[in-house]
């Protein structure tokens, strides 16, 4: 396959950045999207041109490192798939592909397709935990947890923290990300003691970091590579309301 790539190039945070057109030759349909970029980068380097910088690590769809806007869609055209798990057989010979970084006020660009997601970290620091010291925990089976609740907690906990939800939201909202963490703990007995404090602290930090509000576009759910459902945003809203009502 032969493709034409339109790629965002930006040397560093202070550079303005621009789209550049780069051709990709000899692409095989069995390649992953990132392997296609490897191929292009190998050629660029041999020509003495700086390779396209992009984030990646596990290439198995679990670390949440890869973060590409592909033709305007976070992680590209396949539902429930990260960019690293997307294969070139989803494209046609001769296609033009636009590749951009996540765009959000809260995710400044570091270089080319790489953004800084430290704002996600700070939300987690604010309350994404159960306050339990190591040692002295009761037996794992001391408190039974119904399979239904455990499964719901797991559905939420599957979030890989990639930021696709923010990148795809017209408001740049991080609600789905925050909802996933809050819901995981809300469904478990271990999360109960700090339930109110957690939701308040995480939402306050989310707001302070410059993420937008949710106005029910549900773009986040559509692009989430782990299919985290928006019903968790409803749960987040309820959790937040409970704290306001003093329940």
């Amino acid at each position: 396959m032969k493709l034409t790539l339109h790629v965002w190039r930006q040397k560093n945070a202070s550079d303005q950045g621009r789209m550049e057109t780069i051709s990709a030759d000899g692409v095989s349909p069995d390649m992953s999207f990132l392997e296609m970029l490897d191929l292009v980068n190998d050629r660029l380097e041999k020509e003495g041109v700086e390779p396209i910088a992009f984030d990646h690590d596990c290439r198995e769809g679990i670390c949440g490192m890869c973060s590409l806007m592909i033709n305007g869609v976070a992680h590209g055209p396949e539902a429930g798939t990260t960019a690293c798990q997307l294969h070139m057989r989803s494209f046609q010979d001769g296609d033009s592909i636009h590749i951009e970084p996540w765009r959000s006020r809260a995710f400044p660009v570091i270089r080319d397709l790489i953004v800084d997601r430290a704002s996600f970290e700070r939300i987690q620091h604010a309350g994404g935990y159960v306050s339990v010291n190591c040692g002295g925990a009761p037996d794992g089976n001391a408190v039974p947890i119904s399979k239904i609740e455990a499964d719901l907690a797991m559905d939420a906990a599957a979030c890989i923290g990639c930021g696709a939800c923010v990148a795809s939201c017209p408001n740049g909202s991080a609600m789905l990300f925050v909802a996933a963490k809050v819901a995981q703990f809300a469904h478990l007995p271990q999360g109960q003691p700090e339930r109110k404090k957690r939701v308040q602290a995480m939402v306050a930090t989310m707001d302070a970091e410059g993420f937008g509000a949710c106005s029910n576009h549900y773009e986040c759910e559509a692009v989430c590579p782990k299919d985290i459902p928006v019903k968790f945003i409803g749960e987040l809203n309820r959790e937040y309301l409970r704290t306001a009502c003093g329940d």
Binding site: Y129, V130, V132, A137, P138, G140, P144, I145, S146, K147, A150, D151, A153, M154, A157, Q184, F185, L188, Q190, G191
Partner: peptide, 9 residues
């Protein structure tokens, strides 16, 4: 478990 790891049940 105490940290809230959602193991299979």
């Amino acid at each position: 478990v105490a940290q809230g790891v959602p193991f299979a049940r």
